[in-house]
Every structure is written in structure tokens, then in C-alpha cells.
């Protein structure tokens, strides 16, 4: 029973909050798509939301928040490079 309580407070509850947060952020992203909103600011907002969702999954679900800096940095770098590249490509497309 002690183990189950530890799991609830240290692992399950934070991940439940992350799950709910991910659903809310998905709802925001979908709403932006549904309204067919575009433009630089909207796209940057969508990319920031996507970065936050990626960090939430990597940090809490995958457990990277408790790992060394190197493991976290690789994942964060991937998210930044992919998200930044998409942003740059979008800006190029505006010209």
C-alpha cells in the first residue's frame, strides 16, 4: 500500500495533470485549425503549443525530467530544431 501511495503522489498525479493539460492544448490547436486561422503570430502560437506538448510528453510520460542534462538536452534540441525549422520554412513561404 505504501508503494501505491508513493506512486500516486510522485508519478500518477503529475502525469494525470499533464494528460489533462495535453487535452486542453490539443483543443486549442484544433480550434485554431477549425477556424482556419493563419498568419505568422498564429503559426508561432501553434508551434509554441506543440513545443510545450512535446516537452510535457518527454519530461513526464517518458520520464526525461529525472534524467541527466544530456538526455534532456537531446530531446529539447530536437524539438527546437524541428519547430524552429518549421517556423523558418513558414516565413520563407510568406515571401
Amino acid at each position: 500500500m505504501h508503494n501505491i501511495e508513493n506512486q500516486r503522489s510522485q508519478f500518477i498525479r503529475p502525469c494525470t495533470r499533464v494528460w489533462l493539460g495535453l487535452l486542453v492544448l490539443t483543443g486549442i490547436t484544433y480550434s485554431i485549425g477549425k477556424m482556419e486561422l493563419g498568419g505568422t503570430q498564429i503559426v508561432m502560437l501553434v508551434l509554441v503549443i506543440t513545443f510545450i506538448k512535446g516537452e510535457m510528453v518527454a519530461g513526464f510520460f517518458m520520464g526525461l525530467r529525472k534524467t541527466s542534462l544530456l538526455w534532456r538536452a537531446i530531446m529539447a534540441s530536437w524539438l527546437v530544431i524541428v519547430g524552429g525549422g518549421i517556423a523558418i520554412a513558414y516565413l520563407i513561404g510568406l515571401k
Binding site: T26, T29, Y30, I32, V46, L47, T50, G54, V57
Partner: peptide, 14 residues
């Protein structure tokens, strides 16, 4: 899951 989280806004929304 993480890959779809990026794929969805990239292909369906942006």
C-alpha cells in the same frame, strides 16, 4: 505519441 503531436499541427493545422 510525441511524433503525432507534431504531425497533427504540421499537416492538419498550419
Amino acid at each position: 505519441d510525441l511524433l503525432w503531436i507534431i504531425l497533427f499541427p504540421l499537416v492538419y493545422v498550419i
